[in-house]
Nucleic acid binder design. Structure first.
Lengths: 127, 127
DNA sequence: CGGTATCCCTGAAGATACTG
DNA sequence: CAGTATCTTCAGGGATACCG
């Protein structure tokens, strides 16, 4: 019954512009600094909470848990609790998560490629 | 002199994890909801301020100007002021802006492809 | 019409402390 | 170690008004 969406992928992003659409809601969740950095940091690896904390420099304990919960809720990361003591919790990207990661990779690559250009643009603008 | 980066693209995103790196600074600018929605809305077109306001539903006057300034400063959008009355201002993606847009497109496409999966994941999580 | 400035307030986000 | 809860702060962001 959702076969309508299987036709093609270009014009349907129109509803991303609708403030109340489900797509916009998901986009708003995902399109934020910490979420994207976490996804990028995870990559193909499985990392513990404390490892993620080190990988994503600057993220607070609170922001990390908060974003991990959100990503888990949306099915982008898998959360595996080991009933050991002390506790150990492993995070891994799910299939949708890895799919999104390729897009995040593109943004990261873009950032590095245009670093010089952007910094000089800033210099010009600030003058 | 920057040929080092031409080798391969994977390990260099390491400095995105450094909180004070230039790459992280750019990423923090760009990786936010409104900036990405504006870039996506512009696409290949040239739009006026008021048109953008309509395209990106839910964006306030303030957020729109604020993000457009930021994008202009980073050299991602070109701002063309027509000295008419009433004034008219056109916004267009620059080459770096269009390059980033392809990555944003990927995220938008991903959002739609995984919409169903995500919503059911949420249902499960919230239970 | 587009931009800036001001006011104001909600909520994002840090710090801290406690539990399993 | 990982997570939750509480408190507090400060700035993100809305609403409004005014300028060019």
């Amino acid at each position: 019954m959702v076969t309508k969406q299987l036709l093609k992928g270009l014009p349907e992003d129109a509803d991303l512009r609708r403030a109340d659409s489900p797509a916009r809601e998901i986009f708003s969740d995902v399109a934020n600094k910490w979420a994207l950095l976490i996804i990028e940091a995870l990559g193909e690896r499985t990392l513990r909470f404390s490892e993620l904390r080190n990988e994503v420099e600057g993220v607070s304990h609170k922001m990390l848990t908060q974003n991990l919960r959100m990503l888990e809720r949306n099915g982008l990361v898998d959360r595996k609790v080991h009933p050991t003591v002390p506790p150990r919790v492993d995070y891994t990207l799910t299939e949708p998560g890895r799919a999104l990661r390729t897009a995040v990779d593109a943004i990261c690559g873009w950032t590095h490629q245009h670093l010089g250009h952007i910094e000089s643009a800033r210099g010009r603008f600030d003058a």
